[in-house]
Amino acid sequence: MDKPKLATCSLAGCFGCHMSILDIDERILDLVDLVDFDKSPINDKKAFTDRCLVGLLEGGCSTEENVHVLESFRNSCDILISVGACAITGGIPAMRNNIPLTECLSEAYLDGPTVYNPGRVLPSDPEIPLCLNNVYPCHEVVKIDYFLPGCPPSADTIWEGLVALLSGKPLDLPYQLVKYD
């Protein structure tokens, strides 16, 4: 029987949650026995080739591209797990949410104390994804099935969560493994 497929992505995140996935150390050998990686920064595979059982999401949605990637994960994965504070709450990027986007852009590109931009040009290249008005947690954009909080969630949290899911056991994380920081 084919192994189930696992996909991962980093949306508006810092890749810290992916570092935490790698932090499972030698258990990655067990993980390879349990799943095959499909689209993921870990194997650098850019597009889905198969339907996946599980998608791990790092980061919230800050740009239109984040939304497209998130929707492609929802369409290609049976189960989506929000991993980490940014996917669940918007996290640090969401600290811009109580400042209007035009103010954020002018601080970053026009009026910030270290900005040199004599043409006063805001980035508008079609290659650059447009910013959304706010940063959204993943579950406010598509349905999310499970949540693993943390900044990042520890390798043990991700490992226990994934193994429980893949082996069909109930997820009963000990108190120390569910933290928001």
């Binding site: 640090i92 406010e140 999310i144 949540f147 909080p149 933290k179 928001y180 920081d181």
Partner: peptide
């Protein structure tokens, strides 16, 4: 934003949320 807060870990709001087993809020931010 717990990761950016000095009080994180000593915060009583976090304390009750951990105690009640909350992983993500059900209401929009």
């Amino acid at each position: 934003i717990c990761p950016s807060c000095e009080k994180s870990g000593d915060c009583e709001l976090q304390g009750v949320a951990y105690e009640l087993g909350i992983t993500a809020p059900k209401y929009p931010y």
